[in-house]
Design a protein around this nucleic acid. Structure first.
Lengths: 289, 289
DNA sequence: CACAAAATGGAAAGTTCGTTCGAATCAGGC
DNA sequence: GCCTGATTCGAACGAACTTTCCATTTTGTG
């Protein structure tokens, strides 16, 4: 063991350590050092034996390598490599939990504290949205909307405001849009009139309003394109979405922030606006190369 | 084991399989399915025992889960999750870079850049909201809502989703609530039935929908309490609000973020929830000092 | 209400993995 | 050329992990 008061706790500091002491290492340890910095993924996922094979050293050398940098053994060092892979991801749910407890603590008397905590939580949702949305799905969703003849939008309870906003936005962009709002109780009949050239946009979160789920399923089974916004990949709306988005906003005191979903909806609308503008321009200037 | 000729070799196909067969799985397997799709990183890095603990199932259930989808055991399935991590991970650092360059270069075309820009703008709105909201107004608004007999909510166009959310939230807190949605064209008549013990909540931004403005003015002149959410203090809704909030969100690409207004609405609802809980407790334990 | 089938719990067996430690090998100095 | 110290090898051990199997509970059905 080189010195006693070390053991880097982050991948970055470990890398610095390895780089600084590289010249003073024995040949085999140098080989491992190179491997560790060039292919850290393998160090996170593979076993001592298989790493030893690829590096053409004995397993015990890997343990000596780990101890050389202050860890108690290989497993101890491997934690750092595993951490590097998930970087930042686990923070979200913990942070939300913090917000929730803080909100519950300070809330009873001061509404302003509620506002504070709630907007903070909403901001977190928005930050996360940027990371979790699949760019390909976003592009495809916009194309689907642009290609559709008539767009039907459905959403109930907490999801209704989002559905309403989508309908509003589409109408502003002069799309044929129909918000299925259950007034008059004719939704099943309305859904039955959808054609394969139309599009159904559905929004629902747990517990998924049965009427919405059924509508989506019926329409999707009839091979009519569906675009769904829901919370988790296992939701029935994800299963029956031709394209789907998951915006999982952890709930805060029985109410979930919907800022994430709303912003996604708004981004879809704005993206659609640009998409249509671009196509209009192309048509105006003739065919493009 | 469900069938014999399967075992997805990629994470995508595994995800599709899980989504498709989710409904037919037993409760515990469903729980694992959710965890697997929502937190695939843990499935790649952690052990059977620790995953079983977080999912609150027995380790054996994880093996059953893996076999259900055609793998020989958990380790066999875990390979897929590990693969996803090494293929998906290098993207991360590049993604950050991509975001930057895409934002600077081609913001107009790329939907992902729009999403980025738009969520950033929404975050800004939320930051501002915390500073601009008057704590006294917030407290008074909650008291007004709590004191009201029946609450009428009105909002059109972009403000309609916000009004709809308020109506939803109030209904969930078991308030008598009526969303004035212009279906049937009876809004003026409905508004005429408001009594001084009721409350009108109105939401409108420039250009203020005339029907909403008129309704608010009429109700306010009749000395019925009004709570309004609008954009600027000079708005007609601010003038005729017994209590009013201004949430001025600068527009971006012809559309304004409404995340700020939505979050204010949600904070009002949650604040009301706590307020009611507190009063209920007080009544239960007698008068408080 | 009893029964069969499915789902789950839990402990014990079996396997893989990480780690240790003495022997073997190598490099450089007298 | 031998000796010393550092380095590496590799078998054996012990711990951790996965898997199996059967008892128990739950669920649905006649």
């Amino acid at each position: 063991m080189a010195s006693d008061i070390e053991a880097p706790a982050s991948f970055d500091s470990l890398r610095h350590n390895v780089q600084a002491r590289y010249d003073g290492l024995s040949p085999h340890l140098q080989r491992l050092a190179r491997l560790a910095l060039e292919d850290p993924n393998s160090f996170a996922l593979e076993t001592v034996t298989s790493l030893a094979q690829t590096a053409e050293v004995q397993p015990s050398t890997l343990i000596r390598f780990a101890k050389e940098f202050g860890y108690s053994g290989f497993s101890d060092m491997q934690k750092i490599f595993k951490l590097r892979l998930i970087e930042g991801a686990p923070a979200y749910r913990e942070q939300i939990h913090q917000h929730r407890t803080r909100l519950e603590a300070a809330a009873e008397r001061d509404p302003m504290a509620i506002l504070q905590e709630f907007t903070d939580a909403s901001i977190l949702c928005l930050e996360r949205l940027k990371d979790t949305v699949d760019p390909a799905a976003l592009a495809r969703a916009i194309e689907m909307i642009a290609a559709a003849d008539t767009i039907y939008v459905i959403g109930q309870r907490r999801a209704f405001p989002i559905a309403a906003y989508i309908a509003y936005g589409l109408a502003r962009l002069e799309h044929r849009t129909q918000l299925l709002d259950f007034v008059g109780g004719m939704v099943p009949q309305q859904a039955a009139t959808l054609r394969p050239t139309d599009l159904l946009i559905a929004v629902a979160f747990a517990e998924y309003t049965p009427a919405v789920v059924e509508t989506v399923r019926d329409v999707h089974i009839r091979n009519i394109p569906t675009l769904t916004i829901t919370d988790v990949p296992t939701s029935p709306l994800a299963q029956h979405g031709t394209v789907y988005f998951c915006v999982d906003d952890a709930d805060i005191h029985r109410f979930r922030p919907i800022a994430g979903s709303i912003s996604l909806a708004q981004s879809l609308i704005i993206g659609l606006g640009y998409y249509k503008d671009a196509r209009k321009e192309d048509r105006g200037h003739g065919l493009k190369a």
